[in-house]
């Protein structure tokens, strides 16, 4: 678990940095979609790692909460937990 990088992505799929994040992500890394980043869940990129999640309030705000499995939906507290246990965090 430690030493893994947690990537926090708040840019929509068309944003260059969204693309860059997916390039830089390793298969063992974690990925959390927040803010406009959650729009990616509609058509999840193939390069998303196994451990990916999306922030509940941002999904709900955009009417996307029903689009993905419950196990992918996380609260603010969950995100803090993921951040605290990650070896390194990159905010894209």
């Amino acid at each position: 678990m430690p030493d893994r990088t947690l990537h926090i992505l708040n840019k929509p799929p068309e944003h260059y940095r969204h693309h860059l994040c997916l390039e830089a992500i390793g298969p063992e890394d974690g990925l959390v979609f927040i803010e406009n980043g959650v729009l990616a869940v509609v058509q999840l990129p193939t390069s998303a790692p196994d451990r990916w999640y999306a922030l509940a309030p941002d999904l709900e705000a955009r009417g996307l909460i029903g689009q993905i499995g419950e196990d992918r939906v996380i609260s603010f507290d969950d995100m803090v937990e993921l951040t605290a246990t990650a070896g390194k965090v990159i905010s894209w």
């Binding site: 990088t5 940095r17 860059l20 830089a24 992500i25 390793g26 890394d29 390194k88 905010s91 894209w92």
Partner: peptide
């Protein structure tokens, strides 16, 4: 190239 090998070499990655 951008990739996990590159970013893993640094303690901090920022923009």
């Amino acid at each position: 190239a951008v990739g996990p090998e590159l970013t893993s070499r640094y303690d901090h990655v920022t923009f």
